[in-house]
Nucleic acid binder design. Structure first.
Lengths: 210, 210, 210, 210
DNA sequence: GATGAATGAGCGTTCATTCAT
DNA sequence: GATGAATGAACGCTCATTCAT
């Protein structure tokens, strides 16, 4: 009876998952609200209402909690963008670009605190990374979106172009967030980033949409 | 003989300077080769073949060593770019853009490891800083360089445009270095970054040449 | 069975208490035998056969260990004297004075080394304190004991008189202990301190007897 | 020619003496104004406008500076009291007692800060001390002063009585200074201390002089 | 599997002391 | 004799990790 088997294990798995979630939540909250210095295992365990020992049941060490947090951010970023792409199959290229920039921008607004805090915590591990798994998916999707227009666009290497668009949008969104206080509104930043991408693709300057 | 008087003090100043340099070199080397975690005062002192106490003769605390390293990088970056600008007053806009991208690219090629490590070490202090003093200088210079062409370029806000060019070139240069291994050559990256800036300014696509 | 439930927690509390006691004992022993300079956290931890970290589980910092030791001495001093007062409600004033002097003398005999060492260690914190809480209790009790005899005694300000008696007895007991080697016996010291108090109160000289 | 010999050495000796004095002054000033934590060799040397090395020319170690300061206080205390005794050969016993108490009291008013600071600094050394050389002189002088009155006074052991008078006055003067804030005036403290000594000697209570 | 008391290596920093000049 | 740059042992304290319960 598969039901029986599942039933016996499910609760445990569910409780495990919940505990992991509690730990990650606590870690996130501490990093955002109290900064990377307050991010230590005892503090996280207490905030998660979990014994320190349990932390090590689910994560091999402190670093791995931070890495997991980073992965989660990147996955959520990637998911959001890919979903936006999916919604925009019918839209014009212009609309698609604007939408992607807006989505990326919003994500950085949301995550910037945590992202910056994580940078100072992940130290060693980040060096080996190189290309992040999530970025390949986005670049892939961008490539597919651009392919039909390849002839009308100013593109030499489709993959390289897609990659640069990704990096440009991501970096500029990040810069806009760190460049505080800024005399420019969010909308001005978004319009400008769109203009960069638009210009790069050799498209005529458009009236930026609201 | 005033030379003699000066000479008596010189050795001390020279030794000071040399010691500071040894400390900074050691710190650089540790950050690049062993990462930000290995960057601790005792380790730096040992690597510099200096007593820990001497560290504190020249730097008020550990953080200030990292900050000094960062300032040095930023100053050398800024100096190199501004000097390049100065050399290019007669050059065409195209040549200027190519030159700046090449310079920035080369600098990141050289400093990226250290720069990455430093970012995770100067955390808190950096946050408060906001806009770096060196970046204003570069943005200023860019602005001046673009001003004469303002009418033929696609520019809404000259300052914002200059800032975005700076961020775009810097971020893409940085990305190109971290994106390793890469199937593209340095030249391809440079050409592509130039194309981004070129397109952004609304200039007709040029076949960028070295 | 509630006993069982209680029993399960007791061991922990007992172990805590025992550890705190081990730490305090170690601190005491170091202060007495090796002096205030040897009183450092690592030394105390080693002597207590406890990790340094455990010290900080029970005490917020080094100073607080010393303060706790001081409080313990003062409380034991205060307790002993107040108890002696309680036992002497029926006794004559003369007997009471003798008893108090003997008690104070004995306490200083026992604690003087530790007390001396602690004074040099609690420095700053002590300064702010001003009047010790334990001393008020003793002065209060003395005041009450003297009140019925106020007319026959030579007293201008009952509180001031009580305070001076306390300080005199305490200081002289302390001096007698530090004045080593001394050609006088403990009994001679005690008789003499009693004579000081006796004379101060304007009582006719009595041949103090044990 | 003794003059020549003297002349050649005098300047050096004078300069030495002056330097020692500068060091002691600096140490005193730091202890009083900045507390025992700020009392370190580098700080003292800087304050004294002397190289750290010179400190070690005149004092074998840091501790010895503190000890010297302590000796100086005690000598000045002893000198002041002995001088007062000398002035009072003609005075009545009552006048003598009042004068001594006043002198001791004034000295503690003056030195208490430094004295308290020194206690926390001299740590080890003070333990071996036992009887201070200065106290014997004062006790001796007291003894001589009391001897003619021995029959009319309530004295069992003249030396012990003298010692206790010294300790009583000194301790109570010290207590009056540390017992801050106090509801009593200096004059009240002095009168009371006089009363203690007076009573101890079995003398009839006197109207305390202003 | 869960806990949290216990650990101790290792941190940043200080400062008494030395010694080449 | 005078100097102060240089030293490094030692400090108070933290926190990632372990392991007996």
């Amino acid at each position: 009876m598969p039901t029986a088997v599942t039933r016996r294990r499910k609760p445990k798995q569910a409780r495990s998952r919940e505990k992991v979630e509690r730990i990650l939540s606590a870690a996130r909250s501490i990093l955002v609200n109290e900064g990377p210095i307050a991010f230590n295992t005892n503090r996280v365990a207490k905030e998660a209402k979990v014994g320190v020992g349990s932390l090590y049941e689910y994560f091999p060490n402190k670093e791995s909690i931070a890495q997991r947090l980073l992965e989660d951010i990147e996955r959520s970023e990637s998911d959001a963008i890919l979903q936006r792409f999916a919604e925009l199959t019918e839209a014009s290229l212009h609309e698609a670009i604007v939408a992607i920039v807006e989505t990326t921008f919003a994500l950085y607004q949301k995550h910037s605190h945590l992202y910056q805090a994580l940078r100072t915590v992940t130290g060693e591990a980040r060096r080996r990374e190189g290309i992040r798994p999530t970025e390949t998916a986005i670049v892939q999707a961008t490539q597919e979106r651009l392919k039909p227009h390849q002839d009308t666009l100013q593109v030499r290497d489709l993959e390289l172009t897609s990659l640069l668009i990704f990096y440009t949008v991501e970096s500029l969104a990040f810069s806009s967030v760190t460049h505080q206080p800024s005399p420019w509104t969010d909308q001005q930043w978004i319009d400008e980033i769109v203009a960069v991408v638009y210009g790069y693709l050799g498209l005529p300057a458009n009236q930026p949409s609201t």
